[in-house]
Design a protein around this nucleic acid. Structure first.
Length: 639
DNA sequence: GTAGGGTTAG
């Protein structure tokens, strides 16, 4: 692991420096204006009233400072409200004012109103500048309207509506990263560099972080090196945090540890975020004791653990099933003066639910409400899942109604949980009527919902309904995906309706949805049950041609193995030949998600006696692997 | 002399 129990070895002098600097802070951090002293909204409002009545009237500057102070406290709606009040009082405003208020609109996801303000500004002869446009651009991105943002950005540049700068480009890059278009983000990075808008550390951090999130850490590291060595830009703690998180997520602990040492050697010191990343990933890996060690270390370093730190720890204990300890952590937070958020509580709630300790979950849920916290959609989803899990579907349904009466809008997860919960508890009719009630709801276009219902209906013997749901997909303008086909084919196979299964199997290909290895295995199992050897041979041949391998799912392995076993049994052969036929070109080591395992181990395990298979296939060991590798990226090559 | 961009939690 990270060797954190022994601590990251920081020289004493550095430790001394970091503690003394925090002591000195008050000495150097004198508020620059009286507005920076304002720490609560009430004071700001009182001051605002006073300023509006003052004669002569306070300057625009003063009003702007006040608005900004309110904004800094994240009271965005209040800021907007104050601006609205300024209007009838004929208090003058300028482009700074407009920019502050537009920013507030954007931060509460009301970018449209931000654009309206832009118009309002025009009416008052206030000309927007690059700040105005960057803020609006950011607003669109915050609302996930990246395509519109991109159009807006291009228009600004093309029509030269403002002088773009590094922030504007960086904002656009953030938008591209947000929807996972890393390539385009990188292209824009190169373009801005070429045009002379020098990307800075924030620009690089944005892309580095995005690459790390997409688990393309090697590319992130390349970009990092490019930034440091070719561009001479010093990384900040944010850069290191992104990289460390990326490495930890991939369990590349040694490199993460190295990165920690490297940052310290470079004079960039871990902050609360850095420690939280370590705590969080260690907890997720089940190393809660190590996480506790990190917390001790951070305290030693004068970095106070915060709500996020303890929330991760609670998550860690829940994952281990140590609910008592998880609860203790929560209680200790209040003792330390940290106020747990709804996220903290939801983690604990999730722990109770997963352990089917529903009474404690219910009590905690009540406790949350008593504390004045508002359960969010995640809280409700967690609770619903717990109730369905132990079969209390009536209570779950009641809670589902309650959440809506509390104005918590169910999301995709909620519907999936409720529909699946009802189906699993033999309440398919309820599920179907809820589905009908959903009507034109956006969630109706969520394909998973159909998969659940098709499965549910067929399992409770309502084959016609399952068939109809599938057929109706077209009417809703939905194209079945491979998973939907797999489920429907699976239903037919289960019912022994191999004719219909085969028909659908052919149809999907025709409609441009190629069967995947799951499809093959599902249908293969159907034919194996019917002992239609001709079809089995054909399908196996097709799979071989398509290069489908064992690693797609456990199901697929069972398919092969059952078949081979059968053949072996009938022919009374050691089975080496058949094994090669089935596994021949596949690699020995395969990856499912992030878990790696040896096919040979599994085979020996499944075959049990190991009589006919004790040798792993050897041909083309690495052909399948390359499939899982990220596309190559060489930022340096372009320069 | 006032405004805009980057990192954690199911």
């Amino acid at each position: 692991m990270l060797g954190l129990r022994t601590g990251i070895c920081l020289p004493q002098t550095i430790l001394a420096r970091s503690t003394s600097s925090s002591n000195c802070q008050s000495q150097y951090n004198h508020p620059r204006s009286m507005f920076e002293k304002i720490t609560n909204l009430d004071d700001a409002l009182i001051l605002f009233d006073e300023m509006t009545q003052r004669q002569p009237l306070s300057s625009v500057l003063k009003f702007n400072q006040l608005l900004q102070a309110v904004t800094k406290m994240k009271h965005f709606a209040s800021s907007i409200e104050l601006f609205k009040q300024m209007n009838p009082l004929c208090i003058p405003f300028n482009v700074y004012t407009i920019n502050i208020v537009i920013n507030c609109c954007c931060k509460i996801y009301r970018t449209n109103e931000g654009f309206a303000l832009l118009g309002y500004g025009f009416k008052h002869a206030i000309e927007p500048n690059v700040f105005t446009f960057s803020t609006l651009l950011n607003g669109l991105i915050l609302e996930d309207k990246v395509l519109i943002a991109e159009r807006f950005f291009k228009k600004l540049i093309k029509e030269e509506l403002c002088d773009p700068n590094v922030i504007m480009y960086s904002t656009m890059i953030k938008g591209l990263c947000k929807c996972g278009i890393n390539d385009k983000a990188l292209a824009l990075l190169r373009l801005m560099d070429k045009k002379g808008y020098k990307p800075n550390v924030v620009t690089y951090n944005t892309i580095i972080d995005s690459l790390c999130k997409d688990e393309i850490v090697d590319d992130a590291l390349k970009l990092f090196k490019h930034m440091v060595f070719d561009k001479n830009i010093r990384p900040t703690v944010v850069t290191y945090n992104s990289l460390i998180r990326g490495l930890c997520n991939l369990c590349r602990w040694d490199e993460a540890s190295k990165m920690l040492k490297e940052m310290e050697a470079e004079g960039v010191f871990p902050d609360v975020w850095t420690f939280n990343i370590l705590v969080d990933t260690l907890c997720k890996e089940g190393k809660v004791e190590d996480a506790e060690g990190v917390i001790k270390l951070m305290i030693q370093r004068g970095k106070d653990p915060d709500v996020v730190t303890y929330s991760s720890l609670i998550d860690g204990y829940c994952l281990q099933g140590e609910m008592r300890k998880a609860r203790e952590v929560l209680d200790s937070m209040e003792f330390r003066g940290l106020i747990p958020t709804i996220v903290t509580y939801s983690s604990l709630l999730n722990g109770y639910c997963k352990k089917s300790r529903i009474e404690e979950a219910m009590n905690l849920f009540q406790e949350i409400i008593k504390k004045g916290l508002k359960p969010n959609v995640i809280t409700y989803n967690t609770m619903l899942q717990g109730l369905f899990l132990i079969g209390r579907y009536k209570d779950a349904y009641k809670l589902f109604s309650e959440m809506r009466s509390q104005n918590v809008i169910p999301d995709r997860c909620t519907y999936t949980i409720v529909l699946e919960g009802l189906c699993n508890n033999n309440q398919v009719d309820e599920a179907l009527s809820l589905f009908r009630l959903m009507g034109d709801n956006k969630l109706n276009s969520y394909i998973n919902v159909y998969i659940i219902l098709i499965n549910g209906a067929s399992k409770s013997g309502k084959l016609d309904i399952a068939r109809n749901i599938f057929k109706n997909l077209n009417d809703k303008g939905l194209e079945p995906n491979v998973q939907t086909y797999n489920v429907m084919i699976g239903v037919f196979c289960r019912e022994g309706l191999m004719g219909e299964a085969k028909e659908l199997f052919i149809e999907m290909e025709k409609r441009g949805c190629s069967p995947d290895s799951v499809t093959y295995c599902v249908i293969l199992q159907g034919f194996i049950k019917k002992e239609e050897h001709g079809m089995i041979e054909t399908l196996l041949k097709e799979m071989e041609d398509k290069g489908f391998s064992l690693d797609a799912s456990t199901l697929s392995m069972r398919c092969y193995i059952n078949y081979i076993r059968k053949v072996n049994y009938k022919r009374r052969l050691p089975g080496q030949e058949e094994t090669r036929k089935a596994f021949g070109y596949h690699s020995d080591s395969t990856i499912i998600g992030s878990h790696q395992f040896k096919v040979s181990n599994v085979i020996t395990k499944v075959s049990g006696d190991g009589l006919w298979l004790n040798e792993a296939p050897t041909e083309d060991q690495n052909t399948k692997r390359s499939h899982f590798q990220p596309p190559p990226y060489h930022p340096v090559a372009d320069h």
